[in-house]
């Protein structure tokens, strides 16, 4: 099992804030909108240095999505910022009609996704957002794993023409992605080569998959670990290549089973290469209040759960 050294832990939302600030300097068409959550989205630096390109919308997310769609008419590249819950479910019809169906170049940037939002509880812990967004035709859906990757993704989506959903979060997690690693939309990142099982993880579960890989190595299981940061378009080629080699698959994500990364990969395998698959994800449940670590443990989204899923799926492999 490869080692993944890191010098510090950081929150992915700060990677977004840093990327947005850099875009402010390098791309004059980038504008930002926020629904009363500048500090939470780490947009402070952009607001301070580019006030004429920042729009404080207040607690009015539906209006924010419409404004963003309008700003593209005139060549702007709007980045909207609020919590994942208010970036998707609350404004689904606005995104559907004014952004996705209208083909507008809006970047929907969503923080505090999933259980790791913690103590605020289920009202704010959206676990359906990937599914909601990936169902929209032509919507690109990205869920990076750490600070450096979130920053790189933020820079990359500015150069991508079309609507994008960029999902990140609040907790501090190991920042192991090399700072100079290019972010390629739709391309998985091979983290560890292995032969016994393929683990496809996204977002905060990527680090958990690495931890699981070490535990598995101690048991003599050689796991291939791939970071699928782009859920749509899915890197079908890389996923199928790995699955054909290892003959069994585990998916891991901070999301509902329905509609998430596991659901996309299950569809792909069912069509192209039916193989045993286990999903590490929330099973048809809302979250609750608690610390992020407590919640990830209770809802089965940690390295222990991944190890258990690997053992289960390997037992299902045809001999």
């Amino acid at each position: 099992m490869k080692d993944f050294p890191y010098t510090e832990s950081k929150d992915t939302r700060s990677g977004f804030g840093a990327g947005l600030h850099e875009l402010g300097k390098t791309n004059p068409n980038v504008v930002a909108l926020c629904a009363d959550l500048i500090g939470s989205l780490k947009m402070d630096a952009f607001v301070k240095d580019f006030p004429e390109r920042f729009f404080q919308v207040g607690i009015a997310e539906a209006n924010m999505m419409g404004l963003a769609a309008g700003l593209t008419i005139g060549g702007k590249i709007p980045f909207t910022g609020t919590f994942a819950n208010f970036s998707t479910g609350r404004v689904y019809d606005q995104i559907r009609q004014s952004i996705a169906y209208s083909g507008k170049n809006v970047k929907i940037c969503a923080s505090h996704a999933g259980l790791t939002l913690g103590e605020d509880g289920a009202t704010h812990q959206i676990l359906e957002d990937i599914g909601l967004m990936k169902m929209l035709p032509h919507m690109c859906v990205i869920n990076p794993c750490d600070y450096n990757q979130t920053k790189a993704a933020t820079l990359a989506i500015a150069d991508y023409e079309g609507p994008v959903y960029l999902r990140f979060g609040r907790p501090v997690v190991p920042n192991f992605t090399p700072a100079d690693q290019q972010f390629e939309i739709g391309k998985g990142v091979l983290l560890n080569e292995g032969a016994d099982v393929s683990i496809f993880a996204t977002g905060h579960l990527v680090w958990k998959a690495i931890l699981a890989g070490k535990l598995l190595a101690d048991k003599g299981i050689n796991a291939e670990i791939i970071n699928i940061h782009t859920i749509k378009p899915l890197d079908a080629r890389m996923i199928l290549e790995s699955a054909r080699k290892t003959r069994c698959v585990v998916t891991a994500e901070e999301h509902q089973m329905n509609g998430g990364l596991g659901d996309s990969i299950a569809q792909l395998l069912a069509r192209e290469e039916p193989l045993p698959l286990e999903m590490v994800a929330v099973n048809d449940s809302f979250g609750e209040s608690g610390t992020p670590d407590q919640l990830m443990e209770k809802y089965g989204l940690n390295e222990t759960a991944i190890v258990a899923a690997v053992e289960k799926v390997m037992a299902r492999k045809t001999k």
């Binding site: 700003l71 008419i73 005139g74 009609q97």
Partner: peptide, 14 residues
Amino acid sequence: GQGLSVATGAAQAK
């Protein structure tokens, strides 16, 4: 209900 927001955004782009 969406057009006033869109028009306002387009006006701000101008």
